[in-house]
Write a protein that binds this DNA or RNA. Structure first.
Lengths: 161, 161
DNA sequence: TATTGTTATACTCTATAACTATA
DNA sequence: TATAGTTATAGAGTATAACAATA
């Protein structure tokens, strides 16, 4: 049993269920649980490929931006460049991407999908689309667009208060 | 710069920005980013107390369910009982909760908030309410309720497909 | 035998500091 | 000096297996 109650004040332990206090009404809690459930579904669909959602994101971005620098890929995905390295190492070791030196600036590495990478990506896209279709079925026709809009409003950093 | 484009097909690297392909339309991506931003805000508000959102959740549930067993707390929070132990150890070491033996079944530990724990919880609740108020301001009057409803539809496990 | 809390362990994601080679 | 990629490391969250005490 997970959190499901939204009452704010109830100082005594209830009969069968547990009173979660204000947690049931907190977006932080609801977001964490929904994100975990959604991510678990996507991970399960990807398992046979030996690839995680993070790897899929890399392949997807590289398909649309061949020759992208690692730094720009890092910015686009919101993954620190230092954490991108082992992900790229794995994809390169499996022959799904290539790192190529750049003529003008020898510090830079340009990233490309291999044919094998493009082939695997096509499979992953099909899985991801089925995944999204399941979510859309749960949310209803307008629910998915509404949810994307609401989530976007929360995504920018919240410095000022 | 983070992902922000929703176009599906564009095979060439764009001028300034990066084409994120289908990632921009994926709920999995939007959820991860929103959850991270929201969680970062809550963590920042809690920092001065030396407590994390997970600790707050424990204190909040114990306030409403004094004497709760560890196993039931684990179920209520969705945290494995094995991962609850170090969190409870920290809270007990700081004198915020107490573990008490139970008469009928000596395997069981009952958990209680101390006075200090209740005092800290009151502060954390105020911080959490301010946090939620900021989110509500971003989402609009109905947005928050809509979001909670949409997230709840995604939270149940998605076994069947 | 089964259950409760615990320990040990491992994997993923994330974050910072420091190194290299280039510029 | 500064930048791009890398290495090493550490923290937090989550997962399983196995143990001791108790039922």
């Amino acid at each position: 049993m997970l959190i499901g109650m939204q009452d704010e004040d109830n100082a005594v332990a209830p009969s069968g269920a547990v009173n979660a206090g204000m947690l049931g009404g907190m977006l932080s809690v609801a977001l964490r649980r929904a994100q975990a459930a959604v991510n678990d579904d996507l991970v399960a669909r990807f398992t046979a490929t030996g690839v995680r959602p993070g790897h899929f994101g890399i392949l997807e971005v590289l398909k649309h931006n061949p020759g992208l620098r690692q730094g720009h890929l890092s910015d686009a995905l919101g993954v620190k460049r230092t954490n991108l390295v082992p992900l790229l190492d794995m994809l390169e070791a499996r022959g799904l991407i290539e790192r190529q030196a750049v003529a003008g600036d020898r510090r830079v590495t340009a990233l490309f999908l291999t044919d094998g990478g493009a082939a695997l990506l096509a499979q992953l896209q099909t899985m991801a689309r089925a995944h999204e279709a399941l979510l859309a079925a749960r949310l209803g026709p307008d629910g998915r667009a509404q949810l994307l809009d609401l989530l976007a409003r929360l995504t920018t950093p919240m410095a000022g208060g």
